[in-house]
């Protein structure tokens, strides 16, 4: 089973971004090294939708460069589900671009936001532990 190690501060930033964009879905990238997240990069959702997201490619490029400048790389993506559980949808699975990435879901369905992380490899979803540092 995989693991995502991430600080409470970075988790809080993802939740804040999700709340800021509500009722639209928010999305962004995680920078770091393998299982250790060192930074989050909020991105624009070009779909501007409450049900889908398309991560702005220029924001992706900038995040990629910023991660590289600090000796890291993009290790995953996060996005919010505003009205459903923190579990990858069929759309998420079908469009998951990289089997080495962490797929973090921030669900705003309940009063308290829920953050979970998954690996998606060849269409199979496996939840991983989110370990707070």
């Amino acid at each position: 089973m995989g693991v995502l190690k991430i600080s409470r501060e970075l988790i809080t930033r993802m939740i804040s971004h999700a709340l800021d964009e509500y009722p639209l879905e928010a999305c962004g990238l995680l920078g770091g090294d393998a299982e250790l997240a060192k930074e989050v990069y909020p991105a624009r959702n070009d779909a501007a939708s409450a049900r889908v997201y398309t991560l702005n490619p220029l924001d992706h490029l900038k995040a990629d460069r910023a991660a590289e400048a600090t000796g890291h790389e993009i290790i995953g993506v996060y996005h919010s589900h505003t009205h459903s559980e923190a579990y990858p949808s069929q759309t998420d699975v079908a469009q998951a671009p990289d089997p080495s990435w962490h797929y973090v879901l921030v669900s705003l369905k309940r009063t308290q936001p829920v953050v979970r992380s998954y690996r998606i490899v060849a269409g199979t979803i496996v939840e991983e532990d989110v370990v707070e540092l």
């Binding site: 779909a47 889908v52 996005h79 459903s84 469009q95 998951a96």
Partner: peptide, 12 residues
């Protein structure tokens, strides 16, 4: 030149 995967998804 940078090649990037398109990143998309959603709750649908």
């Amino acid at each position: 030149v940078s090649i990037l995967p398109a990143v998309a998804g959603g709750s649908d």
